[in-house]
Design a protein around this nucleic acid. Structure first.
Lengths: 214, 214
DNA sequence: ATTGTATGTTAGTAATCGCTCACATACATC
DNA sequence: GATGTATGTGAGCGATTACTAACATACAAT
């Protein structure tokens, strides 16, 4: 069956990308080599090239996989119709869980893509970051429209702070996971940051009353 | 003169570290090679090893140099006795200028050190991050003591958000410097973040009155 | 003048890198 | 059974890596 062989090809390719992820997670980007991939998949180096054109393609596929899996992981938080602040908090939790599960691969891959000269790798990394920022920014914009977030908040700036919170937490966590638990640090930052999104007290009172009359 | 030759040695070593910085700045960490260093300094590869024991030492020296120059750059903001929020804002500006001047080398080097397995490189990177966070945290703690910052703020969490703001801005800037100017994004984030450090309105009023009576 | 040290060179090492080629094998289709 | 395609192997390519040994030279101290 052609379909089966085609599927096998995709499976092998997925195995390779998975192996790439594991290699980077355990030994950093420098340990991503064709030899290492072959050894992990259980074939020879030449066989790797049956499913992948070059090492660059492996990196591009990995970036794509990271993007898909990350947005898959946080999608539960975004598509709810709850309060914007709850959605953001949920999103942060899901993102933190994702980072722990995947051992910070997203951070490492993005940092690496940023210093690549190859334009396709660069723009793949750029698109990943921009897409993430747009998602957060959109939630905040919606929150403002619904009167759940202070309207003086710049959605773009808030999204960048949100993204930066994760970068900051992951950086520390990568250096010393035991003393810098991801979720605890993330929660502590969120508790602080959300105060800059909320209404000041008088506005909040006014908003509560408005809600009550609706 | 022994002193002169010793000085020359240090000068050469400094040239090498400078060359390492430039290599990474233009081509990413992968373009940091002994060949590249030799070519940039204007000597042969073997001569590099007269002033440096290994490539690892180059990285360690670079980390050290980044730490020294960064703290040198932001020191003007820290040792002033102005309002804590002003000091933080000034520090952010100085840090941003530093990143622009050094082409984001600190971000790249830290991200790279985080995925090294070599313990000395790892801990050098870790110490750099922790020292920076302590500095910010201390300013905030002082600000709380002086009644300039809301006492419910967690200094550690605030420091991490501060650090994350820079990481976030630099990440975007590395991908596309023209469309994501560092200082503009940093200022936009700061305007938002500082609201979570400030007193709520009533407290601020109360504090102002207290200040007046002092 | 001699000696020692710092600093450079040329030439090379073994290891690893990404990648390719000629060839084998399994298997679906005809 | 013949054919074509997908997928594998072994061997090896040229390039690059970090690093070293043997040797040269400049120069300060004695």
């Amino acid at each position: 069956m052609k379909t089966r062989t085609r599927l096998d090809h995709q499976t092998r390719q997925h195995q390779i990308v998975e192996a790439a992820r594991e290699l980077i997670a355990t030994g950093g980007v420098d340990s991503l080599t064709i030899r290492g991939l072959a050894s992990r998949v259980g074939v020879t180096e030449a066989a790797i090239y049956r499913h992948v054109a070059s090492k660059e393609e492996v990196i591009l596929l990995l970036l794509q996989e990271v993007q898909e899996s990350l947005f898959q992981a946080i999608s539960r938080a975004t598509r709810s119709d709850r309060h914007a602040l709850e959605r953001l908090e949920h999103m942060l939790q899901l993102h933190v869980s994702y980072v722990e599960l995947r051992q910070g691969i997203s951070f490492v891959v993005i940092a690496q893509a940023a210093q690549f000269e190859e334009p396709r790798v660069r723009s793949a990394g750029r698109r990943l970051v921009e897409k993430y920022l747009s998602l957060v920014s959109e939630i905040i914009t919606q929150g403002i429209e619904r009167g759940e977030i202070d309207k003086t908040v710049s959605p773009d700036a808030a999204a960048m702070i949100f993204f930066g919170m994760i970068q900051s937490a992951v950086t520390r966590w990568l250096f010393d996971p035991s003393t810098h638990p991801l979720s605890e640090n993330a929660v502590a930052m969120w508790v602080l940051f959300r105060t800059s999104l909320e209404f000041s007290d008088e506005d909040a009172d006014r908003h509560l009353k408005e809600e009550g009359t609706d």
